[in-house]
Design a protein around this nucleic acid. Sequence first.
DNA 1: CATGAATGAGAATTCATTCAT
DNA 2: GATGAATGAATTCTCATTCAT
Lengths: 186, 186, 186, 186
Amino acid sequence: MRLKDQDKQQRIKDAMVRLILREGIDGASVSKIAKEAGVSPATIYVYYDSKEEMLAEVFREYSRAPYRYLMQRVRPDMDGDTLIETIVRGCYSFSREHEDVFSFVEQCSRCPTLSERVSEEECSCDILDLIHSYQTRGVLRTYSDWNVGAVLFAPVRFLAMNRCMQTSEEDQLSELIRMLQALLLY
Amino acid sequence: MRLKDQDKQQRIKDAMVRLILREGIDGASVSKIAKEAGVSPATIYVYYDSKEEMLAEVFREYSRAPYRYLMQRVRPDMDGDTLIETIVRGCYSFSREHEDVFSFVEQCSRCPTLSERVSEEECSCDILDLIHSYQTRGVLRTYSDWNVGAVLFAPVRFLAMNRCMQTSEEDQLSELIRMLQALLLY
Amino acid sequence: MRLKDQDKQQRIKDAMVRLILREGIDGASVSKIAKEAGVSPATIYVYYDSKEEMLAEVFREYSRAPYRYLMQRVRPDMDGDTLIETIVRGCYSFSREHEDVFSFVEQCSRCPTLSERVSEEECSCDILDLIHSYQTRGVLRTYSDWNVGAVLFAPVRFLAMNRCMQTSEEDQLSELIRMLQALLLY
Amino acid sequence: MRLKDQDKQQRIKDAMVRLILREGIDGASVSKIAKEAGVSPATIYVYYDSKEEMLAEVFREYSRAPYRYLMQRVRPDMDGDTLIETIVRGCYSFSREHEDVFSFVEQCSRCPTLSERVSEEECSCDILDLIHSYQTRGVLRTYSDWNVGAVLFAPVRFLAMNRCMQTSEEDQLSELIRMLQALLLY
DNA sequence: CATGAATGAGAATTCATTCAT
DNA sequence: GATGAATGAATTCTCATTCAT
């Protein structure tokens, strides 16, 4: 029973995220989501109080997803080069493997009514803690958290958004990694 | 026969962009836009065939706006440091002075049904041409266009999105500028 | 979960048909129909996918109505005179007793976008089967189905459409019946 | 100048009739008609006070068209057989050669708000006068005008409406002609 | 818990018509 | 006379949500 419910809620989330990838945030109506999830519209209101709350709640949850994904790939004993490479490649492969979640979070984070509810900081805090330790150890240069986050995550997301790269993905990524290594490492 | 009122169309665009800043892309209905612009909903259809086309058309037009804004501030005879500072500060002040257009473009460019209609490249081409000349002259390091664009524009936009900075805006920006100067200049 | 209210759907059909009698096919808007049926406009879309489909579906159903009405009045053991009289009088009284359905079907069958969806043949087939048997028995002359249908149904409908007859309805009808008996019986 | 105007009004009529053939009476909006006619919507109001009046006026005019068409084909000195053949074939070929006008009149004559404005009688009066003379001369049997009209015009129009005939058009028509000759001639 | 029916409010869009030129 | 812009009212239809089961 418990599993059944969990599963149903998960199907709703998946449906919403998939739909928003396909049709944009304004194309995802409750009934479409319900149909995509294979449940009744009314069922959605068993799990969420309103569409607004559903969006916000799932946005809050999925905002952390890319950082969780990263945390499973980085190790505290990596050297600086590897850390940066792992982060950049991780960001990129997350956007490929979880295209729907990536697009969902990108869209929500630009929507003024949603973004104010979730702060970037609390999502990336684990990664930032790790980075702090590298800074303390004198491996990474010491810049403000926002700027480190800005250069580590924004450019690779920018590339992930604009699929059509001139050169191969691999070359593009490698170059960016080298750039960021030069920028951030001593 | 009345002539098409140029001013009226501009009011419609402004209203749309303002509304999307306030309520997000899914909160901007045709009637709200009309009310905000002080025209009848039907009038909007004199200028655009559909809401979808209106969004796309205005998105296409305004996508270039930040780059045009930049082009008016950079000079080909600037030294490398100043060029980067001007670009980064320009990006940031555009986002402040034209908050609505900035937010509008950010939102549209994340919406899958809209973004595929406008390519980043063709918007930034003038700036990229300028950068090429600096690269040729041996002032800027030679990286691929996408990566240069990614590090020059994405981080500062990221900061502009997440208003609430720990330190002062000025310090934050200065630091980012110094980082990018170190990264991109010989 | 509420069950689909059979009665509600019938009220919608009735309302539509009544309205089309009063205001013509182009005067029957979804909201007027809803008001006439005492339901919300949205409810109509629970039962039909679109106005077009609603019209077509109800047209298809009601196209058979006059023929069903006739079938309940004719008997296989009637003599030829009585058969023709029953058919003609049946057609006429149907148009009087079910003025709305009659007018509805007449209007729809002239509308090019609707008429192509419903064939006259499949509606009148039962009556035609009966007529075939009278032809086989040598009671009715053998003409093609279309021509038999044309002379049996079209003239009386024509009279039913143009209410204002010179002489009394009864005399008019009796004469037509005598004409068709002479034409169709040996 | 005069010709120009006449021509423009004719183009409007043609456009309306054509559109109603294609999309039905409820698909013919003023702007569509204007576009089809190649004029401005406002121009239509130079010639007609309202859409309602336009429809009614053109309906009134075109109601007579099939009878005028017939009158040009019948001659007072034809024998009875030829008269009936000419009328029936004339009705049918009119429906083929002027498909749009035929469909337009059929649709309007079933629309309750329009049909009450135009009486069948005054349209067919010339033909009926001719028929009267044949009746006086003892060629045609004497039935009431409505019944004569009903059997002479309704069946062939019925065939014209339901294009898809089993046998060839020619055989179908010939048979109907023979039937009506037998019915109406001494 | 789960549902499909039901709906008031509002969406996008079109309508018939008028107005200023 | 002729026009395209402009619009209030109405169109078809969808939305987020609730209700009865």
